[in-house]
Design a protein around this nucleic acid. Sequence first.
DNA 1: GCGACAG
DNA 2: ATCTTGTCGC
Length: 225
Amino acid sequence: MKLHLAHDHDWDVSTEKARAIQERLAAEVRSEGVTAGAVETVAGVDVSIRDDFAQAAVCVLSLPDLDPVDRAIHRQEIPFPYVPGLLSFRETPPVMQALEQLEVRPDVLMTDSHGLAHPRRFGFACHLGVLLDRPALGVAKSILVGDPAGDLDSEKGSRIPLVDRSTDAGETIGAVVRTRTDVNPVYVSVGHRISLDEAVALTLRCSPRYKIPEPTRHAHRLSRE
DNA sequence: GCGACAG
DNA sequence: ATCTTGTCGC
């Protein structure tokens, strides 16, 4: 896919400068734009780390079937160390290179990270979305900042707000979502050009199925031998 | 000062 | 994230 960068900046920066960049770009995040029901393709984005290399993988799935329609990977040396709150500086560079290889332009980008549920309201999901000016959301497996507002029902589909009390009036920065009964909840937050409700709806639409992409089945079979 | 800390 | 052992469920 053709990458039209709405914003750009240096990547070889200090942690202080990185935080400053996040604070500057956080003002560009938009919490509205996409309608989950109209989304036809979603790109799942993830990065694996081994030694000094980062490998980004992107798989575009169709909705509502979740059939893989395009994919790409890119491996490169880790550009930035892992620092809580600065994850995007390690993951964005390799992911951009993988996205550029796609032939199908996904309607939404889904990342394994937080978006607004971040100390400076600018997690990886926001970073990716704002630089590309594309819809994006974050789906994390654990909390970086904030607290669940109450107790989440064990029933699939239940959701409660994720709020940040450390600030003024305790703002809602995301949602705690149960995608399946008897599984740990995921933490969904806005990345860019999508509302929290649409982000939650999309997360649910993308989770209750078991269709496994061919490459993954192969890798799984090999790994247990 | 101490604890927390996406992946 | 990655590593590694044991256990539970379909």
